[in-house]
């Protein structure tokens, strides 16, 4: 056999001459121009709020009276497989916590954390939960060290909020870096 044998008929020749395949493809693309957008416009306009089961940045919680639930028992520190948690307890008689023992220091090094959630399981008072904050990238190693005061602060996404939705968001820049601020009032489902 010498060379290739092409079986050219008229239909194929005409298709090639008038770019029919190209036009068909462009037509699909053209159609999408008018269909509903499914791209998540993160971080400029939208943000995905995960479900409650999500394991993001740790949060330290308070009870209904506003008392710190953490008693500084150090079980989270003990259970941590990457040893990224440091707890130093102290005595406190001012009624800050639910017992007279509270955490003097509660620090987590997120550079080491693998978000396994064992600390959450170990916590006897449900003070420690892995929250829904996942934008943890930053430019300084020091900022990956989160302290008790930061983790005790009110969460951006309330605990009652179910999650699993996309909300409107806006990207903000300041000297510390970028921040995506959600607006919980405008929600939509992804699917």
């Amino acid at each position: 056999m010498n060379g290739n044998h092409y079986n050219l008929n008229l239909k194929d020749i005409l298709k090639k001459v008038f770019f029919v395949d190209l036009i068909q493809g462009l037509f699909i693309t053209f159609n999408y121009t008018f269909s509903k957008t499914i791209t998540l416009r993160y971080p400029d306009e939208e943000k995905w709020i995960p479900y409650r089961r999500f394991r993001g940045l740790h949060t330290l919680n308070r009870n209904k009276e506003g008392k710190e639930l953490c008693v500084g028992c150090e079980l989270c520190q003990k259970s941590c497989p990457t040893q990224c948690i440091t707890v130093v307890p102290m005595q406190d008689k001012t009624g800050k916590g639910i017992a007279d023992r509270i955490a003097y220091r509660w620090e987590i090094n997120l550079l080491r954390c693998m978000f396994c959630g064992l600390c959450e399981d170990a916590c006897p008072t449900e003070a420690l939960k892995l929250g829904r904050e996942y934008e943890l990238a930053n430019t300084s190693m020091q900022r990956s060290l989160w302290t008790k005061e930061e983790l005790l602060a009110a969460q951006e996404i309330p605990v009652e909020f179910d999650g699993g939705v996309i909300v409107r968001a806006r990207l903000e820049r300041d000297d510390k870096g970028l921040k995506v601020i959600p607006d919980m009032s405008v929600q939509k489902r992804w699917w």
């Binding site: 500084g72 028992c73 150090e74 520190q77 003990k78 130093v88 307890p89 102290m90 005595q91 023992r101």
Partner: peptide, 9 residues
Amino acid sequence: YRYQSRPWD
């Protein structure tokens, strides 16, 4: 030693 540490630390 009250509330200073845990024995394993």
